[in-house]
Write a protein that binds this DNA or RNA. Structure first.
Lengths: 132, 132
DNA sequence: TATGTAATGTTATATCATAACATTTATGAT
DNA sequence: ATCATAAATGTTATGATATAACATTACATA
């Protein structure tokens, strides 16, 4: 299966992520009409589809939420950054070019063989933080 | 209770984290002789002590492992970075000064009110990555 | 020492994730 | 086309992580 061709379940889950307003947990995905309608019934089915999408760089896991989002740019899986609103859940994927290099430096200078960088910034989005 | 004075359970859990070789989950902490001996029996007891330590900046949560480490420098809770060996679990807390500023810039430029930055770098430590 | 607050104890349960094994579907060689 | 193989999916059960709700105890201080 090539990098960009999705399996049936991956398509279903990817569509769910694309349609979502924010990050979705596996169980939230499972509850969506869109997904139920297709006959997907077991958590494991969702997790397997998500694993495939992560592997293809087309989705990312938000560790601090145990949730998943569709990749908002060209597929990638080596490095990602997010701003996450702790009030409304809004999550924005960021380009992290500016800080990636110093981090890679730090890793290589200690002999660390880096596979993946994950950056999560928690706070209030401009809407939720308006009146504080 | 002041920032540096720990409650009884917080002391017990903090000692456990300090003594550990790497990150510990709440349930791993609960299983330690050191902790059992003190009479701590319920997961919630551990989570509450951990919450207190996080709040005081004396421990950090490693999101990608659902685990916790003692802070390796002066207590802080606004920003932290880690290198995590996916083979042996070795985890090293990093100074992230170099990349903190560009991230704060990105946040403020979009009106995001930043509370916390968490950076996790996954890979192989110098020991585990020796022969690859 | 009375009083309110923070910390702790206890039980139950919610939420997130994977193991093990069976079956079906897609793919490629002949 | 058809057979062999690997990949994907289905199904059931269970493991691992985290919190809710409420009772009790310890602690600070007026």
């Amino acid at each position: 299966m090539s990098k960009t061709s999705l399996t049936k379940n991956q398509q279903i889950v990817f569509t769910a992520l694309i349609s979502a307003k924010g990050p979705l947990t596996a169980y939230k995905i499972l509850d969506l009409a869109l997904v139920k309608r297709e006959g997907l019934k077991a958590p494991l089915t969702i997790y397997r589809a998500l694993d495939g999408l992560l592997e293809k760089g087309m989705a990312h896991r938000i560790e601090s939420l145990n949730a998943f989002v569709a990749c908002s740019s060209a597929p990638h899986k080596e490095a990602a950054g997010f701003m996450i609103c702790e009030q409304c859940g809004m999550t924005l994927e960021l380009p992290i070019n500016a800080c990636e290099e110093p981090l890679r430096q730090q890793a290589s200078s200690t002999g660390f063989h880096l596979h993946k960088i994950n950056i999560e910034m928690i706070g209030l989005c401009s809407n939720c933080g308006e009146n504080i």
